[in-house]
Amino acid sequence: MATFEFPVRVRYHEVDAQGVVFNAWYLAWFDEAMTEFLEHRGLTYRTMLDAGYDVQLVHTEIDWRSGVGWGEDVVIAVSTARLGRTSFALDFQVRGTDDAGSPTVSCGCRTVYVVVAVDGTGKQEIPPLIRNALGAPEPLLPYD
Protein backbone atom coordinates (compact mmCIF):
# COMPACT_ATOMS: atom_id res chain seq x y z
CA MET A 1 0.00 0.00 0.00
CA ALA A 2 1.21 3.50 -0.72
CA THR A 3 2.02 5.96 2.04
CA PHE A 4 -1.06 7.93 3.08
CA GLU A 5 -0.82 11.73 3.00
CA PHE A 6 -3.04 13.99 5.09
CA PRO A 7 -3.01 17.67 4.00
CA VAL A 8 -2.61 20.44 6.58
CA ARG A 9 -2.59 24.22 6.17
CA VAL A 10 -0.89 25.85 9.15
CA ARG A 11 -3.38 28.02 11.01
CA TYR A 12 -2.48 31.27 12.77
CA HIS A 13 -3.22 29.92 16.26
CA GLU A 14 -0.79 27.01 15.73
CA VAL A 15 2.21 29.33 15.39
CA ASP A 16 4.27 30.39 18.42
CA ALA A 17 6.32 33.51 19.17
CA GLN A 18 9.22 32.12 17.11
CA GLY A 19 7.00 32.17 14.01
CA VAL A 20 6.79 28.40 13.61
CA VAL A 21 4.28 25.73 14.58
CA PHE A 22 4.35 25.14 18.34
CA ASN A 23 5.57 21.61 19.10
CA ALA A 24 2.33 20.36 20.71
CA TRP A 25 0.42 20.89 17.46
CA TYR A 26 2.49 18.20 15.75
CA LEU A 27 1.05 15.56 18.08
CA ALA A 28 -2.46 16.83 17.34
CA TRP A 29 -1.74 16.65 13.60
CA PHE A 30 -0.38 13.10 13.94
CA ASP A 31 -3.42 12.00 15.93
CA GLU A 32 -5.78 13.36 13.29
CA ALA A 33 -3.64 11.84 10.52
CA MET A 34 -3.73 8.42 12.25
CA THR A 35 -7.54 8.48 12.28
CA GLU A 36 -7.67 9.49 8.60
CA PHE A 37 -5.03 6.87 7.71
CA LEU A 38 -7.18 4.09 9.20
CA GLU A 39 -10.32 5.43 7.53
CA HIS A 40 -8.54 5.66 4.18
CA ARG A 41 -7.72 1.98 4.61
CA GLY A 42 -11.33 1.05 5.35
CA LEU A 43 -11.55 1.30 9.15
CA THR A 44 -13.46 4.21 10.64
CA TYR A 45 -12.75 5.01 14.26
CA ARG A 46 -16.45 4.51 15.03
CA THR A 47 -16.32 0.98 13.55
CA MET A 48 -13.28 0.16 15.69
CA LEU A 49 -14.99 1.45 18.85
CA ASP A 50 -18.23 -0.36 18.03
CA ALA A 51 -16.21 -3.58 17.65
CA GLY A 52 -14.95 -3.06 21.21
CA TYR A 53 -11.44 -1.73 20.52
CA ASP A 54 -9.55 1.51 20.91
CA VAL A 55 -5.88 2.44 20.73
CA GLN A 56 -3.75 4.30 23.25
CA LEU A 57 -0.53 6.14 22.50
CA VAL A 58 2.20 4.70 24.74
CA HIS A 59 5.39 6.13 23.22
CA THR A 60 6.34 8.76 20.69
CA GLU A 61 9.62 10.20 19.43
CA ILE A 62 9.78 13.33 17.31
CA ASP A 63 12.78 14.76 15.50
CA TRP A 64 12.50 18.27 14.10
CA ARG A 65 14.71 19.44 11.23
CA SER A 66 13.10 22.78 10.43
CA GLY A 67 10.09 24.88 11.32
CA VAL A 68 6.80 25.23 9.49
CA GLY A 69 5.17 28.66 9.42
CA TRP A 70 1.72 30.20 9.29
CA GLY A 71 -0.14 29.65 6.02
CA GLU A 72 2.20 26.92 4.78
CA ASP A 73 0.70 23.85 3.15
CA VAL A 74 2.21 20.55 4.25
CA VAL A 75 1.17 16.93 4.24
CA ILE A 76 1.46 14.47 7.07
CA ALA A 77 2.73 11.22 5.56
CA VAL A 78 1.67 8.13 7.52
CA SER A 79 2.82 4.55 7.21
CA THR A 80 2.76 1.43 9.35
CA ALA A 81 6.25 0.91 10.77
CA ARG A 82 5.81 -2.21 12.90
CA LEU A 83 3.15 -4.73 13.94
CA GLY A 84 3.37 -6.62 17.21
CA ARG A 85 0.98 -8.81 19.16
CA THR A 86 -0.84 -6.03 21.07
CA SER A 87 0.93 -2.94 19.75
CA PHE A 88 1.85 -1.28 16.48
CA ALA A 89 3.98 1.66 15.43
CA LEU A 90 3.17 4.31 12.87
CA ASP A 91 5.67 6.60 11.21
CA PHE A 92 4.80 10.20 10.42
CA GLN A 93 6.63 12.80 8.34
CA VAL A 94 5.72 16.44 7.85
CA ARG A 95 6.41 17.04 4.18
CA GLY A 96 6.47 20.31 2.30
CA THR A 97 8.45 22.10 -0.37
CA ASP A 98 11.22 24.67 -0.14
CA ASP A 99 11.37 27.99 -2.00
CA ALA A 100 12.81 26.23 -5.06
CA GLY A 101 9.96 23.71 -5.10
CA SER A 102 12.07 20.80 -3.87
CA PRO A 103 10.51 18.36 -1.41
CA THR A 104 11.39 18.76 2.28
CA VAL A 105 10.79 16.81 5.48
CA SER A 106 10.61 19.17 8.44
CA CYS A 107 9.74 16.57 11.06
CA GLY A 108 9.73 12.82 11.55
CA CYS A 109 7.94 10.86 14.24
CA ARG A 110 7.40 7.26 15.31
CA THR A 111 4.48 6.54 17.63
CA VAL A 112 3.64 3.27 19.34
CA TYR A 113 0.00 2.46 20.08
CA VAL A 114 -1.46 -0.37 22.17
CA VAL A 115 -4.85 -1.88 21.36
CA VAL A 116 -7.18 -1.80 24.37
CA ALA A 117 -10.73 -2.96 25.05
CA VAL A 118 -13.29 -0.18 25.32
CA ASP A 119 -14.86 -1.97 28.32
CA GLY A 120 -11.76 -1.23 30.41
CA THR A 121 -10.40 -4.78 30.58
CA GLY A 122 -7.01 -3.73 29.24
CA LYS A 123 -4.80 -4.41 26.29
CA GLN A 124 -5.86 -6.80 23.55
CA GLU A 125 -4.23 -8.63 20.69
CA ILE A 126 -4.48 -6.64 17.48
CA PRO A 127 -7.73 -7.89 15.94
CA PRO A 128 -7.99 -8.62 12.21
CA LEU A 129 -10.04 -5.47 11.49
CA ILE A 130 -7.20 -3.27 12.79
CA ARG A 131 -4.38 -5.46 11.45
CA ASN A 132 -5.94 -5.45 7.98
CA ALA A 133 -6.30 -1.66 7.98
CA LEU A 134 -2.67 -1.21 9.07
CA GLY A 135 -1.37 -3.45 6.30
CA ALA A 136 2.19 -4.67 5.97
CA PRO A 137 4.85 -2.49 7.60
CA GLU A 138 6.53 0.01 5.29
CA PRO A 139 8.55 2.23 7.67
CA LEU A 140 9.29 5.83 6.68
CA LEU A 141 12.03 6.13 9.30
CA PRO A 142 15.02 3.90 10.01
CA TYR A 143 15.09 1.61 13.03
CA ASP A 144 17.94 2.15 15.46
Rank of each mutant, 00 (worst) to 15 (best):
A2D: 12
T3F: 06
F4V: 02
F6M: 05
F6S: 09
V8P: 07
R9W: 07
R11D: 05
Y12W: 13
E14D: 06
A17S: 15
A17I: 11
V21W: 08
F22W: 15
N23K: 06
N23C: 01
A24W: 10
Y26K: 03
Y26W: 10
F30L: 06
E36S: 13
E36C: 08
L38E: 04
E39L: 10
E39A: 14
E39D: 14
H40E: 10
R41I: 11
R41T: 12
M48V: 11
L49P: 00
A51M: 08
A51T: 05
A51D: 10
A51N: 10
G52T: 07
G52K: 05
Y53P: 03
D54P: 02
L57R: 11
T60K: 11
E61T: 13
D63T: 13
D63V: 12
W64R: 05
R65K: 14
R65I: 01
G69P: 00
W70S: 01
G71Y: 07
G71F: 03
G71H: 14
E72W: 11
V74H: 01
V75P: 04
V75M: 11
I76R: 01
I76D: 09
S79E: 05
T80C: 15
A81N: 02
R82Q: 04
R82A: 03
L83T: 13
G84F: 12
F88Q: 08
A89Y: 01
Q93S: 04
Q93C: 08
V94T: 14
R95C: 11
D98V: 00
A100E: 14
S106T: 14
C107P: 01
G108V: 13
C109F: 06
R110T: 03
Y113F: 14
V115P: 01
A117D: 14
V118H: 04
V118N: 02
D119A: 03
T121L: 10
T121M: 07
K123A: 14
Q124Y: 05
I126H: 03
P127R: 08
P127N: 07
P127M: 04
P128W: 08
P128R: 07
L129I: 12
I130H: 05
A133K: 13
A136S: 13
A136P: 00
P137E: 04
E138N: 11
P139L: 04
L141A: 08
P142D: 11
P142K: 10
P142R: 13
Y143F: 07
Y143M: 00
